[in-house]
Design a binder for these strands. Structure first.
Lengths: 211, 211
DNA sequence: TGTACATCAGTGAACGCGCGTTCACTGATGTAC
DNA sequence: TGTACATCAGTGAACGCGCGTTCACTGATGTAC
């Protein structure tokens, strides 16, 4: 039976949320459309009233999950912009690693995205750029302008790797899983410091004392 | 019909090679046992004479692919041990990124491994440690002993992330894909240098001049 | 060395199951009068 | 405002297909005598 426009819009969001979480948790190939629809409180047929194919659902669900994560970060930023070091502490935390189904889809599905179509690849690239921009802003006044983007790009790539590795080895060797996060964080932090030391660069912002 | 012991052993290796390459290329959930068997020149039934389940095949195929890659590196090392910078140049190269089905299974399947069982997780942890040890050796005489492992762990984690990201965005934005590799390599290299500068550490080895 | 026979790697049909997608149908919604 | 009706989100059966796994069978291999 037909439902109201508002209800239909709600159902669409419910489908995206369910798809997004399930894909992160069990992989894109590991979840069927029927399960996504059921988790959203619908039958599989209804899904095709909202998305033309599973591929289309994957692309939109990836973007939905990414935006939800970024919104949280932006909400934090409205209160106070976190420093680069604070971003790193969050990126490489055990909490981030253990938040699989609600965490960043880039990290949860990194190696699977390479096998998806152009639409998903483009969404991934956009998402990557957005996170890089956020990190670049946190480096203003800390690192010379010419180095900021390079450090931000490397930080995001390293984070995606460290979280994926930490999740992969966690079942077999939790100590190693934690070491990977901490070692990568420290190393990126050190790379940031080497770009900072020995020059004056930013207009006026002070370099905050970091451990 | 029964085959000779030698032929059976060859078939087992053919199954592992086919499984290993197909899983890297199209994902663990994206390849069925029948396709693996066919690629090895057998029928699916034969696969179960060698492996009790697909799960067992996955774990063994992962290790097979990893060992094949490590053997190549060891062959190179027998001629001349590459420097840390040379390892980085290889880790973050476009050639490495484009070698999906014969490249390191850790990189090809990073985010999928987290969803596999304990056996695969343990194999991943072992593989990670082996690569870290290789990198640590290349840092002897370059970086103080206490920092070597930290840098090696971070380098491998960062490489896995950078390659995964580069593959994910390549279809949509190849310039970004190349930037990710280069930026991450430079940043890890900088982190290595900051640990080197301003101290004497290694017994007697000279620090090679690197660009 | 030659013969008889047990072994077992490999074959291919069959199992139940879930996959992505289609479609005739339902019935509340939203609109035209 | 009340009535008639077109719209379309959602239902659920059905489609062909491939999945992982099992198993009766085959026949060359390897072994015991």
């Amino acid at each position: 039976m037909r439902v109201s426009k508002e209800k239909a819009a709600e159902n669409r969001v419910a489908l995206l949320r369910a798809a997004s979480q399930l894909f992160r948790l069990r992989g894109i190939d590991g979840v069927g459309v029927a399960e996504v629809a059921k988790a959203a409180g619908l039958t599989h047929g209804a899904l095709y009233a909202h998305f033309p194919s599973k591929d289309a659902l994957v692309a939109e669900a990836f973007w939905y999950g990414f935006e939800k994560n970024l919104e949280e970060d932006r909400a934090v930023e409205r209160v106070r912009r976190p420093s680069f070091e604070e971003h790193l502490a969050s990126f490489f935390s055990i909490e981030t690693r253990d938040r699989l189904e609600t965490g960043c889809p880039m990290t949860a599905s990194a190696s699977e995205i390479a096998r998806q179509g152009n639409a998903v690849s483009a969404r991934f690239a956009d998402a990557f750029e957005e996170i890089v921009t956020m990190l670049e802003e946190s480096l203003e006044g800390v690192v010379p302008e010419t180095k900021r983007r390079r450090l931000a790009v490397a930080s995001v790539a390293a984070q995606i790797g460290a979280i994926a590795v930490s999740r992969a080895v966690a079942k077999a060797d939790n100590a190693l899983a934690e070491e990977v996060l901490e070692s990568t964080r420290k190393t990126i932090s050190a790379a940031c410091k080497v770009e900072t030391s020995g020059r004056r660069h930013a207009p006026s912002a002070p370099t905050p004392g970091s451990s």
